[in-house]
Design a protein around this nucleic acid. Sequence first.
DNA 1: AACCATCGTTCTGTATAACGAACGATTTGT
DNA 2: ACAAATCGTTCGTTATACAGAACGATGGTT
Lengths: 204, 204
Amino acid sequence: MSTRRGVKTPPSNNGESGAELGKTIQRLRKAYNLSLGELSEQSGVAKSIISQIERNETNPTLSTVIRLSRALDTTVDEVLRGETSSLFIEHQTKSGIPMLESQDGLCRLAIVGPLSLVDSFQWYDFHAKPKGVLESEPHPQGTIEHLYIVSGELEITTGTETKTGKPGEALRYRADVPHKIVNVGQGEAHAVMVLALRQTGQGQ
Amino acid sequence: MSTRRGVKTPPSNNGESGAELGKTIQRLRKAYNLSLGELSEQSGVAKSIISQIERNETNPTLSTVIRLSRALDTTVDEVLRGETSSLFIEHQTKSGIPMLESQDGLCRLAIVGPLSLVDSFQWYDFHAKPKGVLESEPHPQGTIEHLYIVSGELEITTGTETKTGKPGEALRYRADVPHKIVNVGQGEAHAVMVLALRQTGQGQ
DNA sequence: AACCATCGTTCTGTATAACGAACGATTTGT
DNA sequence: ACAAATCGTTCGTTATACAGAACGATGGTT
């Protein structure tokens, strides 16, 4: 029985409530496109610990959780709740995956702006490999999507209209109808996307 | 005596934010008229530990804090908060900057997003030649500025804090104080800037 | 191919958080 | 008054959270 060794540490699940904590941390980390090393650097927590936390193999100290929450621009409660979800539900892709990855796996949306400010706008870093397609369901009424193309060539289709944008160009279009973004260029495309949600209340 | 460290362990303060945690726990416990033993029984945490936590002599694990928070009928965040938010400088200036060029003429801010949405956020395409400096007056209270660096190397100074960002990195900082952006790299720098204005209305 | 960087995981040693028991200091009861 | 209970703190021990190094796997370069 060797109690020592890094035995699996059975389901030493902290039981309590942090059950989802590991998954949440990992999801947030990936949403920000951070590696374990980077998050380690930003948070001051050893990457080995972060790895264990994400796999629920340890019962972290409060200060560790605080440092991680800070680096991930959120609060401890939010991390505990595991429900950073409200944000993603609104902006679901066809697959509805919170990770914001397109079905073909060629497009990736990473959150750039902080999650806490989400109610007025959302800001994403958009990467798409060649032929990558990102299809989106309509966003809430009045939402306008802005796509600022950093590199590559993207084609936007909204409703019946199709436009192609090149680096340095900014496309703006209604996002309250189904729309699609296709990387029609040779290489990977990179863009910054800003979703502006309509302020309800202000008349047109 | 062997330096068993059991001694005072004075500044073993976790530093960061849990600073007030001990006092808060104790205040709550007393508010409920609980003794250490009683709270221990209700929470499942050894009373010796609670004692140490209240005196900030230990850095509790998350599960411990959760158990205590539960027994005290509150949330982890609330316990952590303890302190009030604090300093929000009352400062307001005209922020309706439609288009900008820095004094040295080396930086250029071009509006990418539409002006009509200005009340919720502003979105700029930022170019700076080497050594270019962009100094900004404080924006309205609560404003947060986001700088997504596409190329080059930029240094942000806000208040007394200075950070340097490289391509692919996103910097976020309060913009309701004077701040400065400097292109410290060799070549031209390019970034996307998003100014997020605080949605007033909801206090706190 | 071989090389180099970086990814996430797994090791090893050390510091310490946790528990339960024992402790002096108060308070309570009779 | 003394005794019994209970308060909060401190002691002794065990389990483990933590940091850093080492590790194989993977991806990008020359």
